[in-house]
Amino acid sequence: MASYQVGDSLPELRVTPDAGLPRRYAEASGDMNPIHIDEEFAKSVGLPGCILHGLYSMAQVARAHTEAAGDPLALKRLAVQFRGMGFPEQEIRVTATVKAVEGDRVVTATEAAQGDNRIIRNGEAEFTA
């Protein structure tokens, strides 16, 4: 069992969703909004192409925490804000810094970015360590 101190960084998670990922996420989650799966529709509403589901990117933030904890069910709370749009075929980088430790509960400040585009900001996660 890892012990955490305020200021510690969790291991960074890096993942590059492929071009087909938004469709697979749509089918797995049930969120079939065409801006994620229909290139023509996405372009017709002014987007450069299909965008990632924010909840997919949030799932990567979740995974960064459960992998750090070494327990797939360690996550007890996660709050995020969706800001920049995420795109397939670009690497997502999830970072998290411990901001509080209370007993076996660890609280982090966390975000996700693609290059300089911070797609998830002001995230706060709580997990058991």
Binding site: V45, G54, L55, M58, L73, L75, K76, R77, L78, A79, V80, Q81, F82
Partner: peptide, 16 residues
Amino acid sequence: FARMVHGAQEFVWGEP
């Protein structure tokens, strides 16, 4: 819906 974006999300988990 044409002007809607998902702005924020929080989950608090209980029983698996």
